[in-house]
Design a protein around this nucleic acid. Structure first.
Lengths: 156, 156
DNA sequence: CCATTAATTGTGTATATACACGATAAAACT
DNA sequence: AGTTTTATCGTGTATATACACAATTAATGG
């Protein structure tokens, strides 16, 4: 009476397609490629645009503060920033606290940000239109709150 | 009359926080970590669980077919499968068409999938409860449709 | 003032992701 | 049959991501 049921394809289909993680990752891939395609003429990829914006916004800011702002692992940000530093868009120097290293935009970085911003708007608008503005707004809010909810995890 | 306005922080804040790409990526990171934490005892990470499920579901299937099913770049899937092959969970052999290479689960792979499934359900339920079941369902649908919409891009 | 603790960072390692390119095999077209 | 086109695949390269660990500096407590 304990025989394994061999055919569970129907179950597995549902597992795959109802998985929050799979769908979040899939959406993330799709959206990233969509933005990258549109923003390509600016030579700024979508994730980099986000980082340039954060550095610009927060002025000279430490790696940890930037990472918190972007909800990114600190060490991930270190590597991501390195790409921008190598491209001359960001510079990293010492802070008041000698443990800290603070990042700020170079002139080239500000240029890149200015160049990319209209394309970013274009991508943003295209998504909103494609998906329906109201629904898009709602989903954006949902995604933000979901992330915030999870990140707040005490993890005791 | 054409001076650049120096202080646009308010604008930049909105750019960062309203960006579909940023929020999709952020949600993807958060959800992945959440699932990984819960599924950790099974030694199967969430993205790998998805792939095991796909391979299990589609039986011996070619890399291209699996990639299409998962909405993943084909070459990405090749690398991801390698990890599972190295762990002995998946085996890859030649197909009828001698260009194809088909993947299927090993016995260890089926074990891992069985071991991980209850934990996956646990993560799934926790998210749904945390976020509210109805809202969760809606968001899942939104994410799926958004991805599908973008992937369908003719890209003429 | 010294010792311990806390904060800030980078590096090693590993997975996830995609694009450009080239190799091989099947299919289609003279 | 021979040539061309299409399909299937892997590899080189590069970015994005996070965890475990170690180094350095600041803060705290006797």
């Amino acid at each position: 009476m304990d025989k394994l049921i061999q055919k569970q394809p129907p179950t597995q289909v549902r597992v795959a397609w109802h998985c929050t993680c799979f769908n979040a990752r899939r959406a993330s891939r799709a959206v990233t490629q969509f933005y990258d395609d549109i923003m390509e003429p600016s030579d700024v990829k979508a994730p980099q645009f986000t980082m340039l914006g954060a550095v610009n916004l927060m002025g000279p800011a430490s790696v940890t503060r930037l990472a918190e702002h972007l909800a990114l692992d600190r060490t991930t940000l270190t590597r991501n920033l390195k790409v921008l530093v190598d491209q001359g868009l960001v510079e990293i120097g010492p802070g008041d606290d000698r443990r800290e290293r603070v990042a700020s935009l170079t002139e080239a970085g500000r240029d890149a940000l200015r160049r990319a911003t209209p394309l970013w708007h274009q991508a943003q608008d295209a998504i909103a239109e494609k998906f329906g503005v109201d629904r898009w707004r709602r989903m954006l809010e949902d995604m933000t709150e979901l992330a915030a909810l999870i990140e707040a995890e005490p993890d005791s």
